[in-house]
Design a protein around this nucleic acid. Structure first.
Length: 584
RNA sequence: GGUCUGGUAGUUCAGUUGGUUAGAAUAUCGGCCUGUCACGCCGAGGGUCGCGAGUUCGAGUCUCGUCCAGACCGCCA
């Protein structure tokens, strides 16, 4: 037998018990006459004590252990003569009687400690060692508990978990597909799913009216800290529901997870905000509502004087940064540089200081009187001591720039508290967005999203104005999930494909199976998918989803541990009728 | 596809206007030490300065190219 207990469970009440423990050598402390060894497993640390006086041979053996050796010990639990209140097992130690080395270890390339000395790259290469560290293990365990709670909640709501295929068909819409060549079907390819979208809709047609799956999805696009080529969704679909039924059901899921994992009670009804309003007030379709700082539209008021920068601007908007009137020239310059970064791209930043003493100082004093500026201050509802930050320009460029500025100010003012959680449903997304490159409309959500009934006539006259029955769940400015009520009518779906620029033949070729299915009694249905990795990262209080994935890929989509992707043998290529081409 | 930052001991980093033998901490190894738990003390080994070219009497340092890593933009229905 390898163990009677884990390394995390022995306490003072186990004194005099004879126990067997197995684990890894975390640390050795050789004091000469005595040697202490910290033994580690998933559950904790237990101190092993060896004494030269009582058993010299055993103590000599213990001194030869190295970091990360795997050992089994048998011995007696004894009370420590000097206890360690920082450790759960700090009151006891094992007086070892038998020590067996189960496996040796070479010296690990970095220290297996909470604060490791290893850099990211090295820890990725030796991920199996990094996973031994507490902070990483905690994230993986958190992920497990969240997955279990998702299943518990959805099962109680009569959802059933159904697996869908991974080798499916490539479709032109959306992200780039990963493709898999077929050996048995020469020159034909499977694609890995970007999501199980069409399968879950087919399950609705099949009458499985509440489906879910915690499932891998694949998108061959460039990566970020919060994006991986393969990622996990909580994928859900319901039949015989309207938008509100879905929002209520999944608000329930969110509340369940927050309560059972973080012990955070969220409000009973999540606020809902139309997409247009989110863009106007926050310049962003996923506003962070942990703080207010709404945009104020200054366009009309500011255009009354001889200031050409404003008079030429389509839109002038600003935010009120509370208590920032005391900002120095240096701080204001830093803010200006922030909005001028290429990623943000504003030309400049205008400020108005509403000082504590009621006086006003601005960067546009030459063009506006104190009375003019006082009218701005009133429009912003600013208090003495506040600072107005204003950006002019094209509306659809300035709103996102102002959003970046708002988030930066929120950060500087400490308003983005990681312990605070503010959920929001953003609803009424546009059905389509115009794509300049291809000179056609793209589906903003996906091609199966239903337009709002009252907007259907606009599909003929002004497709860009059509709103969709689509919604995103946003928490703290992070898009946690999104979904829509689907089209379940064959004719409407055809019209949608037509708007997206598919010929009837192309639509039939790509999505014929779905439209055929709709001929056989498709129920009204809709669903939602949550980015599970992002949700776990948020609960873990971190920004990178890599830290909540056991074996993540790097920036370039490589797994540096197994070194993939990698070339394959010529014979494999031949079997698949593939030929290599040298990249330019 | 683009912008920016970085690459020096096993590891994390420092390295001055371009100038002697490239340092520190930690890890590793050896010695001492009977209550440590970031043990302590003494000592030792450990470097193609990512790679290639160039400028120079002289390059870790400057220039160009290249590879790798990270962040961001484009992209991601």
């Amino acid at each position: 037998m390898y163990r009677t207990h884990t390394c995390g469970e022995l306490r003072i009440e186990h004194i005099n018990n004879t126990v067997t423990l197995s684990g890894w050598v975390q640390k050795m402390r050789n004091l000469g006459g005595m040697t202490f060894v910290d033994l580690r497993d998933r559950y904790g640390l237990t101190q092993l004590a060896f004494n030269m006086e009582t058993n010299a041979a055993l103590c000599e053996q213990a001194r030869k252990l190295g970091r990360e050796f795997v050992v089994k010990v048998e011995g007696t639990v004894q009370e420590r003569s000097s206890k360690n209140p920082k450790m759960p097992t700090g009151d006891i130690e094992i007086k070892v009687e038998i020590l067996s080395i189960l496996n040796k270890s070479v010296t690990p390339p970095f220290t297996i400690e909470d604060e490791t000395d290893g850099g990211d790259e090295l820890r990725m290469k030796y991920r199996y060692l990094d996973l031994r560290r507490n902070p990483v293990r905690k994230n993986i365990e958190l992920r497990h508990r969240m997955a279990q709670e998702v299943r518990r909640y959805l099962d109680a709501q009569k959802f059933i978990e159904i697996e869908t295929p991974v080798l499916i068909k490539s479709t032109p819409e959306g992200a780039r597909d990963f493709i898999v060549p077929s050996r048995m079907n020469a020159n034909q390819f499977y694609a890995l799913p970007q999501s199980p979208q069409v399968f879950k809709q087919l399950l609705m047609v099949a009458g499985y009216d509440r489906y879910f799956q915690i499932v891998k999805c694949f998108r061959d696009e460039d990566l970020r800290a919060d994006r991986q080529p393969e990622f996990t969704q909580i994928d859900c679909e319901m039949a015989f529901v309207e938008q509100n039924d879905i929002l209520d059901t999944f608000e329930g899921l969110a509340r369940h997870l927050f309560k059972n994992i973080l012990n955070v009670t969220l409000e009973d009804k999540f606020p809902r905000m139309a997409y247009d309003q989110a863009m106007t007030l926050y310049g962003n379709d996923k506003p962070d509502l942990r703080f207010d700082m709404k945009f104020v539209d200054l366009t009309d008021l500011a255009k009354q004087k001889d200031f050409v920068v404003f008079n030429q601007a389509e839109y002038i908007g600003g935010i009120c940064a509370e208590g920032c009137a005391g900002y120095s020239r240096k701080e204001l310059d830093a803010m200006t540089q922030f909005v001028q970064k290429p990623q943000i791209g504003a030309k400049g930043l205008i400020y108005v200081k509403y000082n504590e003493d009621g006086s006003i100082k601005s960067s546009v004093d030459k063009f506006y009187t104190e009375e003019d500026l006082m009218a701005w201050v009133e429009l912003f509802k600013a208090k003495p001591g506040d600072l107005l930050l204003i950006l002019p320009g094209e509306r659809n460029k300035t709103l996102p720039q102002l959003s970046e500025l708002r988030l930066e100010m929120g950060e500087r003012l400490g308003l983005r508290d990681r312990k605070k959680f503010v959920p929001l449903w953003v609803v009424d997304f546009p059905l389509l967005e115009w794509d300049e490159d291809s000179q056609r409309f793209h589906a903003m959500h996906h091609p199966f999203t239903s337009p709002k009934t009252e907007d259907v006539p606009l599909m003929e006259t002004d497709p860009g104005k059509v709103r969709a029955n689509a919604y995103d769940l946003v928490i703290n400015g992070v898009e946690i999930g999104g979904g829509s009520i689907r089209i379940f009518d064959e004719d409407l779906q055809k019209k949608m494909f037509d708007l997206l620029g598919f010929t009837p033949e192309e639509a039939q070729d790509q999505f014929g199976f779905l439209m055929n299915a709709f001929k056989y009694g498709a129920p009204p249905h809709g669903g939602v998918a949550f980015g599970f990795d992002r949700w776990v990262a948020m609960f873990a209080g971190i920004d990178s989803i890599r830290d909540v994935i056991a074996f993540p890929k790097n920036n370039s989509g490589r797994d540096v541990m197994i070194d993939s992707p990698s070339p394959v043998a010529q014979a494999q290529l031949d079997e698949l009728f593939l030929k290599m081409v040298q990249p330019k």
